[in-house]
Design a binder for these strands. Structure first.
Lengths: 317, 317
DNA sequence: ATCTTAGGCTAACTATTACTAATGCTACCG
DNA sequence: CGGTAGCATTAGTAATAGTTAGCCTAAGAT
């Protein structure tokens, strides 16, 4: 059905130059080869592309038609190839990144913005979600790399963990907290599993993974069912829920440091140390990262280090 | 600079199927060949097009980019090829036709219209002008064929007359004429060269070729200079000029038959017979006409024959 | 007129390379 | 835990793209 594509390329140059000899020069082959190629193409398509007028080639209608198809393609291709090639020199193209919801919403857009100031050729495609969503997408190649809350996955099983490389980026203390009023009314010093498990909870994900994990970490067991009174994919909403005595929620401590200091929010302490939630960079072990990826990851880690444990993240949140 | 085009075609199918094996099936070659082709293309472009994930190929950004360029092209190409191929079955495409101004203006549009009713795929590009303009364009291949007033070229020299095939289509009597009043006032029976050459003339072309040829035909010589009082590329305007006693003009007799009969317009007779202006079909001798051309020329001659010596042409004029 | 140049076509030979067949590797599936 | 599916690799062969040489014709040049 489709003709030999290289013959189309030759035709393109013949048409451009209206000459076999000139096309041959352009293509760095002999005129004979060009002539033969043209004949083959014509018999392949079973149509005359040029009327031969001694020393002149005049395109037929079919020739014109074919050129009209080829011309934009070859222009696009030249530009495209140049573009693709330059991506080896300077970062460009699309980065597809998986991220925890809150981190992706609050911190990354600002980072993207400053990255793009330096590398305007780069665009981003961000997938917000649980590690349970992000890991498979990395594996399937639909994400270039991911940022995941390792805390959430500590107890989850990934059979093929070996295929990933996981580098910790950020540590954040994760606490269970409620408002002062709620604490006085509902907890009042009783930090036992039995007491805590029956309270109202705020969750910022569809699943109550975060909450469950908090219990597992502190009591080595998880409650069967939690009374979730509000679910919302927004950290700030959870904090506001806490402040308004809606219930208890798991949050990063630094976000509410001021509130804790001033006694408006009370963290629930237990004998075990606070959970450390590690946001880690997850990549495919055996996939060589592109220049763009390497540059961005470098940029990301630098930014995190320089801003002293998530200053930027905190401020924006 | 540009990669091997056939490799692009292979890439296209790999991308479509996201599989070397399936692409191989589509292309009727072995998977090995496809794999090798892909590797060659990648090293040619110096870029990874797919990340290999064991049994899965996931396009990189570069792969996506390349596909975005190829996809529309291949779609267009498939449609285009189909179109070009069908032009062998039914007339389609563009016919570039040269024609005398008046004939092309008055007669051809109507003919095009009825032709297109039968063959709607055909479009026309008409070049109106002298044989001196039309012949070179046929020779250079910029016109598929031409219609020319042979009368005008009788005495003109074309060195390479042999390269054309010339078939008479229509004969028309050409006369020099003026209004009754102008005749009485200026001519009054004196049809001598000396008397006629000094009158006012109307010409419907930039050059006064037509007028000159009339003199050459009737007196075997042409006046050095003619007093052209109006030049306009419209036959009807010339006739109106004649009727309004602006001067004398050369016109086809059938157009003004009624006026002559009723004595409003007087033809200038001389001992020699009236000029016969033959409109002929001119084609390049050694150029095989396409189906579209043959069909149209057939249609044209049939129409002329059936309408009895230019009935249509006359009516419209 | 005759020669020269330019552009294109063809035929036969040569060199490249596209393709195959055979084999190996590894994740996934029952 | 074999069996299968899918891709990669290698070496050898078949196909074809390209070269060289020679011919033809129209236009310019001498």
């Amino acid at each position: 059905m489709l003709p030999d594509f290289n013959r189309l390329k030759v035709f393109y140059y013949i048409f451009l130059k209206k000459s076999v000899v000139n096309a041959a020069g352009k293509l760095n082959i002999t005129a004979s080869a060009v002539s033969q190629t043209l004949n083959k193409l014509e018999s392949e398509l079973n149509v005359l592309l040029f009327t031969r007028l001694h020393k002149k080639l005049v395109p037929t209608w079919a020739g014109h038609q074919l050129f009209e198809i080829l011309n934009p393609f070859i222009n696009d291709l030249e530009k495209g190839i140049k573009h693709i090639r330059q991506a080896k020199q300077i970062p460009s193209g699309m980065l597809r990144i998986g991220s925890p919801i809150e981190f992706g919403k609050s911190y990354l857009p600002g980072l993207f913005s400053s990255f793009r100031k330096k590398y305007p050729e780069v665009v981003f495609d961000m997938k917000l979600g649980d590690p349970t969503e992000v890991f498979p997408l990395i594996k399937s190649g639909d994400l270039d790399f991911g940022l995941v809350d390792i805390f959430l996955t500590r107890d989850q099983v990934f059979e093929d963990f070996g295929i990933y490389s996981i580098d910790p980026l950020i540590d954040e203390e994760v606490i269970m907290a409620c408002s002062k009023e709620y604490y006085v009314r509902e907890i009042n010093g009783d930090h036992s599993f039995k007491n805590l498990a029956i309270k109202e909870f705020l969750s910022y994900q569809k699943s109550s993974l975060t909450l469950m994990n908090w219990f597992k970490h502190h009591f080595k067991k998880a409650p069967v069912n939690l009374n979730r009174v509000m679910t919302v994919d927004n950290h700030q909403a959870v904090i506001n829920g806490i402040k308004n005595q809606l219930g208890m929620g798991v949050i990063a401590s630094h976000i509410v440091r001021k509130d804790i200091k001033q006694g408006r929010i009370i963290p629930i302490k237990t004998p075990s140390k606070d959970v450390i939630n590690t946001i880690s960079l997850v990549q495919l072990q055996d996939k060589e990262p592109s220049l763009t990826e390497k540059t961005f990851i470098n940029f990301l880690t630098k930014d995190i280090l320089s801003s002293g444990t998530l200053k930027t993240f905190i401020n924006i949140s």
